[in-house]
Design a protein around this nucleic acid. Structure first.
Lengths: 250, 250
DNA sequence: CATATTTTGATTGTTTATGATTGTTATTGG
DNA sequence: CCAATAACAATCATAAACAATCAAAATATG
């Protein structure tokens, strides 16, 4: 049986049964225990299921995670490392703003300190935040269909009720002259205001974003801390002069 | 029996019985006392129940609230009929408010007219609304962990930017003297304001809600239209005198 | 066709969940 | 208020489940 077939069969069994033990998967796929374990590990990475001792269970909030889950298979390891580094800046009692996006999403499992309050404009983050037991606030506003981010006037005005210790933002481009940019001007406005309302603003960017420029600018290099992981092709030293830079040594 | 199965069984027993002895859990799950104790400790940590000497009890705030998943399997056919009737009142170009809740959720597939705008405080509704191609706005505010509804000051203030042609609301109790009631005062405030901002307010209630009273009142019978389906045990004529009543003949 | 890479299943220590046992704490009835 | 009793938390041994490792098989590549 081929890997995608097995994965499909596993998810199918889970849809039907909510909780399934390892041996059932073995019987259903005529594969070994080891293979099933590997499959389960992988599917958990992709956030398609939750492993439990003795088998696997369906994720509770499966409904609006799908789009995020698909995206997050790409560069997942890099993103997770960056996310982990970013999460280390968080202190007990902090009030955070988390941008909608896959990198910020990956931060959530690492947000383990006590007494956090998180404000976000990403509907997809809410479920996971609540499962972590984090007190969660959502901005209001128009829902952007493909990303499920909240944007527009409503989002801007409802953000004004909050102040943040730290804001964590994703980006599409980081450039020496043009700063941080993103394709959607609406989202750029939100990011810009989040930076203004935050004591410290962190931009999370994997190496592919450097020297890229997108349409709408939301920050200069000077006003944010950039968190990334190192890559030999990219020379980060030029950025170091303009911005506070934190790099994961992978 | 796997851990999530046990946890589910424990919570299920609690929903049915309000307060349950340790031995009942042991019998129901065929596990040892020690294991149940560990489970209870963990579930209390997750704020799913309250441990008491001799067993466990439901959290007070959650007394008559169930998770969305549990609710939505119950009375589904009835709810769907009510939802369908409610959706018939919707006209092209309308701007609607949809309450968070399972009955309002069931309305979405029937919202097939053109040019709708929907505002809601229910995160769970967003996905399905977008799939229907409806322009969707979400209120801001605190996210209520079990129901994923947006509540609190943030939700109230962000609602003030909108005006609705029609508001559709769920309820837990409908009573001749006490009007419409719901367990959570925070949610009641939201519902109340939605009614104030709407040209017409509709309350969707299956027959089990009649003559019931919950904690927080959000409307009198006079100011809303009630949509329900008929049931022989319940005499709706007394309600007819106080309120506009629409009944599905199932 | 030979070689490199990936996937698989068996084997191995290691970790985890469980149920029994222990001593400790809370409740109850006199 | 105190003793009796029930419920509790803590500890421990064990068995099940686990991750890590490795060699064989399947697959891909030059």
């Amino acid at each position: 049986m081929l890997t995608p077939e097995r994965h499909a069969r596993i998810l199918e069994l889970l849809q039907a049964n909510e909780v399934v033990r390892l041996q059932q998967f073995v019987d259903a796929t005529t594969s070994s225990e080891s293979t099933i374990r590997r499959d389960l590990a992988q599917l958990e990475e992709e956030r398609k299921l939750k492993r439990v001792h003795g088998g696997a269970a369906l994720l509770k909030g499966k409904r609006d995670e799908q789009t995020v889950a698909q995206k997050s298979t790409k560069n997942l390891q890099e993103k997770r490392k960056i996310a982990q580094l970013a999460a280390q800046s968080v202190q007990p009692g902090d009030c955070l703003y988390l941008d909608a996006g896959t990198t910020t999403y990956e931060m959530i499992p690492f947000l383990t300190v006590e007494d956090l309050v998180v404000v976000t404009n990403g509907i997809s983050l809410v479920n996971t935040l609540l499962e972590q037991g984090v007190q969660t606030y959502l901005l209001g506003g128009a829902v952007k269909p493909n990303t499920h981010a909240l944007i527009g006037r409503g989002a801007l005005t409802s953000m004004q009720s909050y102040r943040f210790d730290k804001a964590f933002l994703g980006t599409n481009g980081i450039h020496l002259q043009h700063g941080c940019t993103t394709p959607d001007p609406e989202e750029a406005m939100i990011k810009e205001q989040a930076i203004a309302l935050a004591g410290e603003a962190y931009v999370l960017a994997d190496p592919s974003k450097f020297h890229e420029v997108s349409f709408a600018r939301f920050a200069s290099l000077e006003e944010v801390r950039i968190i990334t992981c190192e890559e030999k092709e990219i020379d980060l030293s030029s950025f170091q002069q303009h911005s506070k830079l934190e790099v994961v040594t992978s």
